[in-house]
Design a protein around this nucleic acid. Structure first.
Length: 409
RNA sequence: GAGGAUGUAGCUCAGUCGGCAGAGCACAAGGUUGUGGCCCUUGGGGUCGCGGGUUCAAGUCCCGUCAUCCUCCCCA
């Protein structure tokens, strides 16, 4: 049997409903905050991700799905959305329209990782970006919006927040850490040795005792962050409090992508195993320029739809279902005609396609969790599946009038 | 990329020392020839993940492989 590819999944049934529910809910919130949708390609030039996400990051080094197309172009399935969004912002010359831009996107991302609960090779994100605003109020508005999403979906997650300082501060601090930890190469764990090259900030996060010990004496980020950045961060925290957003400052919070500056944040849950980050983002003030656009401050976030799905409870059944059952084969066509009539009257209905004994059709209807059954014979009998009561009608019009009356109540 | 656990009916899972492939639920038919849920009876269902090996004999032992789950890692 041919099976689905490792790390890929079929989303169907209740899960498909959850997926759509999340996307609809989040899109609705984006609309409330006046973000505009951008539908981006799934395939981009490899160098876009090398130059934005970072040449040395795990995502670029070992997790991208890359291939050559027939024209010999080096391409990649997108591992994240921000890079494409920035590329489009520059390529479509949105900056030329002046003011600022608020965009959102949604769709599949691809990373070749070891699958795990809440981690797939094809996964889905929904995210938003703001281009052209350096004001701290943009950070506050964005984070408050994500907070609203989390609250609207009724998800238990805490907000952790930190600042990395401006681009230069971050670079200087990384170098300082690299210099410091290089003295202890023989004492660092294997993964931290790699982090020395890739992302020295992550060493501070290591759980190995010996690494923790060395980290204690390591340079502290506050010494490398400008007063402006610190003030900015404190102002953001103050605004968040006033907006009613709860947070926890985590000085160890570092994002894995190279482009972040200043504000970084994650919404984290401990209810779905090790992959607890449900939504995350931050500011990336240098990325647009770095990719060939005009200097443009920017920020954004993305949420993992599969992880949100793991956190939302069973959806409530909203609409009522009516199943039409012809009592024998003589009335099938009449039943189908009735179904058409109901649907033309905007009434949701299921026409019983399974043939067999009335008993087996009733069992099937029950499995569909139908609310009402209409038995079709020379008359029409409406049965309430909860109470078992039946009403007899002799014309389709009378029946529909009755149903519409019921729905109005 | 590293470590660990698991894989038997549609689902959840038993299967002892290597000796005829099992249960519950689900499904089908009937009890009630025009009515679901509860109950009773009967029935249909199997590439024991896949491929090798050992053996008179393998779901069971050995090797490989694939997949799922968990941890590390990474990240949404």
């Amino acid at each position: 049997m041919i099976q689905k590819v490792r790390g890929f999944q079929d989303i169907y049934g209740e899960n498909a409903k959850k997926y759509r529910y999340i996307v609809e809910t989040v899109r609705n919130i984006f609309n409330l905050y006046s973000f505009q949708e951008i539908i981006l390609p799934y395939v981009e030039d490899i160098s876009l991700f090398k130059r934005s996400v970072g040449e040395e990051t795990d995502i670029v080094q070992k997790e991208m799905y890359t291939f050559k197309d027939r024209g010999g172009r080096d391409l990649a399935l997108r591992p994240e959305g921000t890079a494409s969004c920035v590329r489009a912002y520059i390529e479509e010359k949105m900056y030329a329209q002046g003011s600022y831009h608020k965009l959102f996107y949604e769709g599949a991302m691809f990373r070749y990782e070891r699958p795990q609960a809440g981690r797939y090779r094809q996964f889905h994100q929904i995210g938003a970006e703001i281009f052209g605003v350096s004001s701290v109020y943009a950070d506050a508005e964005l984070i408050q919006m994500v907070d609203k999403i989390v609250k609207t979906l009724n998800i238990q997650a805490r907000l952790e927040i930190n600042t990395l300082g401006d681009f230069n501060s971050r670079k200087l601090y990384s170098q300082a850490l690299r210099d410091y930890f290089s003295q202890y190469k023989d004492k660092l764990c294997e993964t931290c040795l790699k982090r020395l090259d890739t992302n020295p900030l992550r060493i501070l996060d290591c759980k190995v005792e010996s690494c923790k010990e060395i980290s204690k004496e390591a340079p502290v980020i506050t010494d490398y962050i400008s007063k402006e950045s610190k003030d900015r961060f404190n102002e953001l925290l103050d605004i968040l409090s006033k907006l009613g957003v709860n947070y926890r400052v985590n000085p160890g919070l570092v994002r894995g992508l190279d482009y972040y500056t200043e504000t970084v944040f994650e919404f984290i849950t401990d209810k779905i195993g090790a992959q607890g980050t449900v939504a995350a983002g931050g500011r990336y003030d240098n990325l647009v320029e770095q990719l060939g656009g005009p200097p443009t401050p920017a920020l954004g976030f993305a949420a993992g739809i599969e992880r949100l799905m793991l956190l939302i409870s069973q959806l409530e059944k909203k609409d009522i279902l009516i199943t039409i059952i012809p009592i024998n084969s003589d009335y099938i066509l009449k039943g189908l005609e009735l179904s058409k009539f109901l649907r033309d009257s905007e009434i949701k209905s299921e026409f019983m396609l399974k043939t067999g004994s009335l008993k087996s059709m009733m069992k099937t209807a029950d499995k569909f969790r139908t609310d009402f059954v209409i038995f079709v014979s020379d008359k029409l009998e409406l049965k309430d599946m909860k109470s078992g009561e039946q009403l007899i009608f002799y014309s389709e019009e009378d029946l529909i009038d009755h149903i519409k009356g019921e729905k109005a109540v």
